[in-house]
């Protein structure tokens, strides 16, 4: 099994850390993992993306041009990565601020309004965990318990009191995600 994932959004939406948690979860689960960020000016406020690969085999290229799963959190990311999802693959998008929605009919489309939910519930920093929960509902590539272990590894100890909040956000995401029909 190899899962090639791109996560893309605005800098500050937690794109890179979502990828990091996913990569750590894979590590805990004994998989081969790679995490390749766009490290350019993006991380200073523009669009940021990260390629995460989880596999049972040695990973060759950390840089890809097509993906099994794309998670897009803004319009430029949707425009860039929708065409790059492999036929039969999965695209997850947050509807917040989009003026053009996905159009492909040969891939599985899912909408998760994580941003809207998080702001309504005064917890904007959980957006990425809500989306991660949504991903794991439809693509259970790692066990939730391994995600929580991965999360613990990525969070500095002084933030460990936030672990229950993040776990809750994962479950919220599992409830929020829904299929989207073109």
């Amino acid at each position: 099994m190899t899962e090639e994932i791109i996560i893309s959004g605005f800098g500050g939406q937690g794109v890179l850390s979502m990828g990091k948690i996913l990569a750590y979860s894979g590590l805990v689960q004994g998989q081969e993992v790679s995490w390749m960020p766009s490290y350019g000016p993006e991380q200073r406020g523009g669009t940021a993306n990260v390629t995460v690969i989880l596999s049972n085999q040695r990973i060759s290229s950390p840089v890809l041009n097509t993906y099994d799963t794309a998670i897009v959190l803004n319009q430029p990311s949707l425009d860039k990565f929708e065409p790059l999802v492999k036929p039969g693959g999965t695209l997850i998008f947050d509807g917040n601020g989009l003026h053009r929605l996905p159009v492909r009919t040969d891939i599985n489309l899912y909408q998760i309004n994580a941003t809207e939910y998080a702001y309504a519930n005064n917890s904007s920093k959980t957006i990425n965990m809500i989306i991660l929960g949504g991903l794991l509902k439809i693509r259970p590539i790692v066990e939730i318990e391994n995600v929580l272990k991965g999360l613990k590894k990525t969070l500095p100890p002084r933030h460990h009191h936030l672990l229950p909040l993040n776990e809750q956000a994962i479950h919220t995401g599992m409830d929020l995600i829904m299929p989207y029909a073109v």
Partner: peptide, 10 residues
């Protein structure tokens, strides 16, 4: 190169 420097792996 920048990729090998920036990427995370086991």
């Amino acid at each position: 190169d920048g990729i090998i420097g920036q990427m995370m792996e086991k």
